[in-house]
Amino acid sequence: MTHDINRRRLLVTARWLCYALLLAVCYMLQTNRVLFDLGGIRPLWLPAACLVLAMWEDAFPSVLYGMFAGLLWDVSSNRLAGFFAICMMVCCFFCSSITQLVLRRTVFNTCMLTLGCLFLVTGLDFLFSYVLFSLPQSGIYYVGTLIPTIVYTVVACVPLYPLCSLMHRIGRTEN
């Protein structure tokens, strides 16, 4: 009995470590210039991973991993510390809550939630980094770079969904 409990605790810890490793790998993929580059557009792996993760886990761990992913995103971009961390915390809480209360876990719902959250987060970033400074041709940047990046990121959610589903099952007893 004690052996089973210890084994289960170990597996649960392994699950959390797997999630953290997944976010570290996504950070590496996101900051790499060559991998998954399509005409200069690359997916945002970090928000995709933590939003998919949030759909599989409860609010508390989802928000913690969202904060971790957001801090990693802040590191790789020249943005103010904590900006993406706060955005991802809110988005992960929303995704986790709405999945527990209303939505079913499907690939389509995952893509739609990711799409909505990315539009919100990148929209805020665009507002504070470009619109407020009245940079010229910001609209062209939004349409030509941001929107394709968002679409590409939603596509990147598709392989992350089964991966998070697999990690979610580690350490959980089957009913």
Binding site: A59, F60, L64, G82, A85, I86, V90
Partner: peptide, 16 residues
């Protein structure tokens, strides 16, 4: 747990 999350959110805002 919710109070911890709120604290972390406030902490991130503080860093910002």
């Amino acid at each position: 747990k919710f109070k911890v999350l709120v604290f972390l959110l406030v902490l991130m805002a503080g860093f910002l």
